[in-house]
Structure formats: C-alpha cells, structure tokens
Simulated scan of single mutants.
Amino acid sequence: MSKRLFVKGNEAVAMGAIEAGCRFYFGYPITPQSDIPEYISREFPKVGGTFIQAESEIASINMLLGASACGERAMTSSSSPGISLKQEGISYMAGSELPGLIVNICRSGPGLGGIDASQADYFQSVKGGGHGGYHIIVLAPGSVQEMYDLTMLAFDLSDRYRVPAMILGDSVLGQMKEAMTPHPYEPPVDLPEKDWVVTGKGAHGGQRIVKSLYLGDGELEAHNWRLHAKYAELKEKEVRYEGVGLEDAELVVTAFGSTARIAKTAIRMARDEGLRVGLLRPITVFPFPEQAFLQATETAKRVLCIELNAGQMVQDVRLSVDRDAEVFFYGRPPGAGSLPTPEELLEQIRKYYKD
C-alpha cells in the first residue's frame, strides 16, 4: 500500500503532473497558486524536466502552446487575473487542437480583488474565456486527493481529444492540507499516437502544420464543426459527477469544488433531522452532467445550487433539470470570511425543503 502523505492541494497538483509524465512547466507567480511552481521548480531537475518562470502570464501560455505542438506533456498554472491574461493563448491552443494543462487556483475578483477563495471563474472556464466560441475540458476537484488524481486524468483527456484541459480549484483547495495517497500513473492503452507533432520534417518524413488560421473557402466553418463534434463526444463519453443519497431525495443540493465539501456536512446534518436530501456534485463542469440532473429531478423536484459567487453554475443547472423542477440558489460573492458554514447551509436546506 502506498504511503499516505499530508500535503497541500497545490502540491498534490504538482505531484500528479510529474507522475503523469509532465516535463515542461511555464508560469508566473501569483497568490494563491505559487506553491505549484515552487514545488515543480524543486522537483523537475530530479526527473529531467524543464521549468521556466516566464516574464509574464502571456509568455507562459504561449510557451505551453509551443511545447504542446512538439508533442510534450506540458502545463501552466495561475490564479484568476493571471488566467485572464492567458485567454488569447488558450483560444489559440483550442483552435490549433493542442493539448495541455492549465491550472486555475481561483481568487477573488473582479479586477485584482483579493486572495480569498472564489468560484466566480466558472463562466470564464466553462464557456470559453477567450474569443471564438470554443470549449476546454474543465475538471473541478473537491479534495486534495482529487487534485492529484484529476491532474493525471486531465492530461489523458487532453491528449485523447486534442483539447486543452483545466483544473478549476480555489484557494481553499490549493492551500489546505489533508491526507493523500499517491499512486503510480497508469497511462491508458488506447491514447492516440501524436502523429501531428511538429518536430521537423526530417523526424517524420513529411510536412506537418499546426495552426488556427483557416482562410480557404469553407475551411474555417468545417474546422469549427469538427471542434464542436469533439465537444459533443466529450458530453457523451467523459461526464463525471458524484451522487450521494439521490435515490430517495426530495431536495437535491448541488455544488462543486470546496463548496461541495461544506454542503456534504450540511446534508449529513439534514439527514440526521430526517430530511431526505441528496448531493449531486459535478466533477466535470465541462462537459456538464446534464443527464444526471435530468434523471435526478424526474423524482426530486427541488434543487438547491450553492456557489461561492453571485450565481454562475446555477444557469447550467436550470438548463439541465426536468421541466417541472424548481431550482433555487444560495451564493456568497467572494470576500474576506465569505465561506458559508454547514449550519448556514443547513438553514437554506430547511427553507427550501419545506417551502
């Protein structure tokens, strides 16, 4: 059995990336994600990796693009304002069908905001934060263990579909410590060969071009339909979520990331009072678990969406539930001391369970 370690969520992301074969990191320090580049800069020399603290977030995302185009597993990480600066490069990667990992340990905003936890980057992450109507794969861990496990998964999904992937965390998950069990990376046996990499004509005997510029008649339309076919395939094959107590639930609570941890405690408290409450936690927030919400609300006609923002994921919930279901929202915009308590969420559960 592997030894359990007591580590930060940020460290778990870095450990998972190294275990998954990532050997190129490009980034720029910003609180609360700076443990990731600190850890990787210390550990990469031991595995022959390349770490570059770039001159800016813009430089780092374009370095990621270049390393990916050469077929390497590579990543960058930042926090909310830094991710905003990377959006043009992320759009270029999506348009060029390049894999790669972007980690966002969210902080408060808008603007510089603060370093407190926030989930207000949901729209930016799942709707395509840059130009061009694209999507990326977005995974929302709920524990330090998942920060490790989902980082590995993100690399695999990104390589499989040639779509950039994001780990969407926040400063609670990034900075908290809890027990985690590291385990060896097991690469999927059916990952496609990277027969598109641009490593020089002499290396593969022919010309290869990675690009997002399509000027021929009908080329760009065809390219966009091909991209959106991938997104449809992701929705069909790669949805992940956690369901607890949905079988007899009269009220479904939904939340993602660190907020779901607090919601779980509130649900246990509600169950102790005899309230039949279940949890539906999206793990992939793109692709969103639409069918899971539809199925859950065929019997449970009330949904309470809890977020650390003024209301973002709740829009996807409302689009996914059964037409007869009611969706309620309880949010806390980010700010000092803004994390809800289990008792606070229990009060909301009582309110919407009875109404």
Rank of each mutant, 00 (worst) to 15 (best):
L5A: 11
L5N: 02
V7T: 04
A12D: 12
V13I: 14
G16P: 14
I18H: 01
E19H: 08
A20C: 10
F24R: 09
Y25P: 09
Y28A: 02
Q33M: 12
Q33E: 14
D35K: 06
E38D: 13
I40Q: 00
S41N: 03
F44C: 03
F44P: 00
P45W: 07
K46M: 05
V47D: 05
V47N: 05
F51A: 00
F51I: 00
E55G: 01
E55S: 08
E57K: 07
E57L: 07
I58Y: 08
I61G: 06
I61S: 00
S68Y: 10
G71R: 14
G71T: 07
E72T: 06
A74I: 04
M75K: 07
S77T: 11
P81Y: 02
P81F: 10
Q87K: 01
G89Q: 11
I90E: 11
I90Q: 08
I90G: 11
Y92S: 01
M93R: 09
M93E: 06
L98V: 10
L101P: 13
L101H: 12
I102L: 15
I102M: 13
V103A: 11
N104R: 00
R107S: 09
R107Y: 08
P110M: 04
G114N: 15
I115E: 03
D116T: 15
D116V: 15
Q119K: 05
Q119P: 08
A120H: 05
K127I: 01
G128P: 07
G128L: 09
G132A: 12
G133W: 08
G133Y: 07
Y134N: 07
V138K: 12
A140M: 04
M147E: 12
Y148K: 09
M152V: 01
D156W: 11
D156L: 05
S158V: 04
R160L: 05
Y161S: 09
V163F: 06
L168F: 12
G169D: 09
D170E: 13
L173V: 09
M176P: 00
L191N: 08
E193K: 14
V197F: 02
V197A: 10
K201G: 03
R208F: 04
V210R: 12
Y214T: 00
G216K: 06
A229V: 01
A229Q: 15
Y231Q: 10
E233A: 15
L234V: 10
L234F: 12
K235P: 03
K237F: 02
G243R: 09
G243Y: 01
V244T: 05
A249L: 04
V252P: 08
V252D: 00
V253A: 13
G257P: 04
A260G: 10
R261K: 10
I262R: 02
M269R: 11
G274H: 03
L275G: 04
R276K: 15
G278F: 08
R281V: 02
R281E: 13
P282W: 08
P282K: 06
I283S: 03
F286G: 00
F286A: 06
F286K: 03
F288Q: 02
Q291E: 15
A296R: 09
T297S: 09
V303I: 12
N309R: 06
A310R: 14
G311H: 09
Q312T: 01
V317K: 10
R318A: 15
S320G: 13
V321Q: 13
A325L: 03
E326K: 14
E326G: 13
E326I: 00
V327C: 02
V327L: 07
Y330Q: 08
G335T: 07
E343K: 14
E344S: 11
Y352A: 06
Y353H: 08
Y353T: 02
K354G: 00
